[in-house]
Design a protein around this nucleic acid. Structure first.
Length: 211
DNA sequence: TTCACGATTAGCT
DNA sequence: GCTAATCGTGAAG
C-alpha cells in the first residue's frame, strides 16, 4: 500500500510507535541523516489525537564551520541542544514562525537537519484547524518549515524533545510501506551565507515540497 | 537597554 | 516575482 494523502488510513498510530527511529540513526554525519530522513514519518501526539506526515524536504546545517548555521558564531543559549546527544529536537523561532530540526552527530558535534516540508498523512482536518481558514489547498498546509510547525502544533515547549521514543509527543518513524523515490540535491533556501552549498534534499517530483 | 538581523509567510501584481 | 509584517536572539554599549 502506498502512503499518501489519497489513503490517509494506511498507517495506524500503534504501528507508528513501533517503528520509531533509534538514536543510532541520528548518530551519523549530518548529510547522511538528512538524506535518510526523506520518506520517514513525523508523528505528533496531541491528547488522543495524532498528526503524521511523510518528510519530503530537508536541509543540512553541518556545524560551526557552516557559515549559515546558528552555531557558526559558537555556542549560545538557543543552540545548547545541538551540542547534546543526537536524536532530539532543535526548535527556534524566526520572524514569528517556529522551525523544527533533528539533531545529528555525536555530542559536541553540533549538526542538525531542518525539516522543510511534509506530505500530510494523518490528522489532515486537525492540521487545517491549526493552520487557519486562509489555507485553501492541502499542499499549502505543510510546504514550508514554519507552516508544518503550525500544522503540527510545534513550539518551544518541544525544544529538546526526544524524537527516538514512541512515547514522546513528537517522534520520527520508519516508513515500511513507502514507495521508492529519487533524491534531488539543491542549494539551501532563504539564506545569504554559503548560499551556493548544496545541502537541500527533496523527494524528486513530490508535490508537497516548498518550491 | 538598544539595535540589527534573519534557516519565513501571505498577499499582492 | 516582490514585499510588508513580524519578533526572538545575540552582541554591543
Amino acid at each position: 500500500v502506498k502512503i499518501g494523502i489519497e489513503n490517509p488510513l494506511s498507517l495506524s498510530p500503534e504501528d507508528l510507535g513501533q517503528r520509531v527511529l533509534d538514536r543510532d540513526f541520528f548518530d551519523r554525519r549530518t548529510k547522511e541523516v538528512a538524506r535518510g530522513l526523506l520518506g520517514k514519518i513525523l508523528v505528533r501526539k496531541i491528547g488522543d489525537k495524532i498528526i503524521a506526515g511523510k518528510i519530503v524536504e530537508v536541509e543540512a546545517y553541518i556545524g560551526e564551520h557552516d557559515p549559515a548555521a546558528h552555531v557558526s558564531a559558537g555556542r549560545t543559549g538557543r543552540t545548547e541542544v545541538l551540542y547534546d546527544e543526537p536524536g532530539n529536537a532543535y526548535i527556534f523561532k524566526i520572524r514569528g514562525h517556529h522551525c523544527l530540526n533533528a539533531v545529528a552527530e555525536e555530542e559536541n558535534s553540533p549538526g542538525c537537519v531542518l525539516i522543510r516540508a511534509i506530505e500530510p498523512i494523518l490528522g489532515i482536518n486537525e492540521m487545517k484547524k491549526l493552520r487557519g481558514l486562509h489555507v485553501k489547498r492541502n499542499r499549502d498546509l505543510t510546504n514550508g518549515p514554519g507552516k508544518l510547525c503550525q500544522a503540527f502544533d510545534i513550539d518551544m515547549d518541544l525544544y529538546g524533545a526526544d524524537l527516538t521514543s514512541g512515547d514522546s509527543l513528537l517522534f520520527i518513524a520508519e516508513n515500511e510501506e513507502g514507495e521508492d523515490f529519487k533524491i534531488e540535491t539543491t542549494k539551501r533556501i532563504g539564506i545569504t551565507k554559503a548560499s551556493d552549498w548544496e545541502l537541500r534534499y527533496t523527494i524528486k517530483g513530490n508535490k508537497f515540497v516548498s518550491k
